[in-house]
């Protein structure tokens, strides 16, 4: 995407600069009609439409792959944002909740059910997925997956008042044994 954007940008700049190197072209309505065909219909409509259509199709294809789909090994957790902390709950360990640390198994898809207790927040773990908003009264589901065990930094990414800057949390991905241990016993 970056390379394409740079290429288009350079194209526009070169066309601009070339305009200064030439004396004016032929005049008259026929010459103008030809210019309209080249500049407006060709470059303005044709070129823009082609590039944008390709890009949109690509975006939709990638977006489709990121969609949460049901599967046998999907783990479901719950994230509730509030000013200025996160509480996490676990479908596999009812009654268990953790503060500001979300425990997940590594190597398995995890659905995070995101909601809010007060104002709007946003759940964002840059290394695991895009962001999704926590909106009071609504539950949004985000699919994340950590390839390897370890800690992943997360932040609240929707401005939510005084301590917004400090609205952070951690996602801790465990290997299978540690995950099972977490589910079975108290391991805060």
């Amino acid at each position: 995407m970056l390379a394409g954007a740079t290429a288009i940008f350079l194209l526009v700049l070169v066309l601009l600069l070339l305009a200064f190197r030439r004396g004016g072209g032929p005049s008259g309505s026929e010459a103008d009609a030809r210019r309209e065909r080249v500049w407006i219909q060709g470059l303005g409509l044709g070129f823009s439409l082609t590039v944008l259509a390709a890009l949109t199709a690509y975006g939709l294809y990638v977006g489709e792959r990121l969609l949460p789909r049901p599967g046998p090994d999907v783990v479901t957790v719950r994230a509730e944002g509030r000013q200025w902390a996160w509480s996490f709950g676990y479908a596999d360990a009812p009654g268990r909740s953790t503060e500001n640390i979300l425990h997940i198994p590594a190597g398995r898809p995890v659905d995070v059910e995101i909601t809010s207790a007060d104002v709007i927040h946003s759940f964002w773990v840059p290394r695991l997925a895009g962001k999704l908003d926590a909106i009071p009264g609504h539950v949004n589901v985000l699919r994340i997956e950590a390839d390897a065990p370890g800690d992943y930094a997360g932040v609240g990414a929707e401005f939510n008042g005084r301590d917004y800057t400090k609205h952070r949390f951690t996602v801790r991905a465990h290997d299978e044994a540690a995950w099972n241990a977490f589910l079975q016993e108290e391991m805060q």
Partner: peptide, 13 residues
């Protein structure tokens, strides 16, 4: 895009 290229075309003209 149409406007941008129309403007560049005007410069060329």
């Amino acid at each position: 895009g149409v406007q941008i290229f129309a403007w560049i075309g005007t410069l060329w003209k």
